[in-house]
Amino acid sequence: MKLIKPLTITLLVTTSIFAQSTMCFKENHNSMATIESTKLDGGECKSTYSLLEMKEKGYSVEDIKITTSNNGKYNFIYILKDSVSNSNFSNTSNQNSTFNQKDLENRIIKRMEEKKKKEIEEKKIREIISLKKEGKEIYTQKCQSCHGVNGEKSAYNVATPLRDMSIDDMSHAIGRYTNSHEFGYGYNIIMRPIAANTTETALRKIKAYLDSINKK
């Protein structure tokens, strides 16, 4: 997915000669050693040209910014200037160039951060969906017959409905059923084998499923 549309800065000068700068980038790249031969995104690179290929087209590196992602990979931002640039630009043009390049750099970094945030949010959503799906399977097989379709029943009229229990309450009950013969109002013989084979991870899946179907 491209972070931004191709961005190109055209610098106005006091003469008929002009210079063109473009900003290209690559995020989450594995190695510094291979970046120059890797296709760059954005600007005139267009996910088609590498830094080496841009140099062959007449561009030179005017500036570079390298940052490290949380996953240990590298993010690169290149400011490339084409070969027609010369030293006859006014100070105003140079200041405008610096300002625009910095602005573009900030925009790309912001998009990178937004994309990373979105990826984290999407990952959480996928995890929740997976928890609910697996929780439904576990609940249907192990719990539904006694605790009701939605966890609304008080099993044998003595237990707290599962939908009303916190994950800590459920974990405590499972532990007591597993380790104490006296817990469970005489129904330990029914729950103990189930409790002994229900892990903390399974409980969290069950809880996620029950919460999803009992939303108020």
Rank of each mutant, 00 (worst) to 15 (best):
S93L: 03
C45S: 09
I79D: 00
Y59I: 02
S93H: 02
E105I: 13
S93V: 04
S87T: 12
N100F: 12
N96R: 12
K26W: 05
S85D: 13
A33Q: 00
K73C: 08
I64T: 08
S16Y: 04
A19N: 06
N88A: 09
T68D: 01
M54L: 12
S90A: 08
E36T: 14
L40Q: 01
H29V: 12
Q101M: 04
Q20G: 07
S97P: 00
G42Y: 10
K26N: 07
C24G: 13
N71R: 14
Y74I: 11
E56N: 10
G58Q: 03
S60K: 03
K46G: 00
A19W: 01
S90I: 01
K57E: 00
K55A: 09
Y49E: 03
C45Y: 12
T67N: 10
N75T: 07
M32P: 00
K102C: 03
D63H: 11
F89H: 11
T34V: 01
F25Q: 10
S60L: 04
S37A: 11
I64Y: 09
V84F: 09
N71H: 05
C45P: 06
T67V: 09
I77L: 10
D82T: 06
L80S: 07
T68W: 04
G43I: 09
S93Q: 10
E53M: 02
F18S: 13
Y78C: 09
L104M: 12
K55L: 03
C45F: 10
H29Y: 13
S90C: 00
A33H: 02
N91M: 14
K55S: 04
Y74M: 11
K26C: 07
K73M: 12
A19R: 11
N28A: 05
L40N: 00
F18V: 14
K26M: 08
Y49C: 06
I79A: 05
N28D: 04
T68Q: 06
T92N: 01
T48R: 08
Y49D: 08
N30D: 13
N100D: 07
Q20V: 12
F99V: 07
F18Y: 05
T92C: 02
N30Y: 11
Y59F: 14
S16G: 05
G42I: 12
T48V: 10
D63P: 02
T98R: 13
F76R: 02
N86E: 02
S85I: 14
E105Q: 13
N94R: 04
I17D: 14
A33L: 10
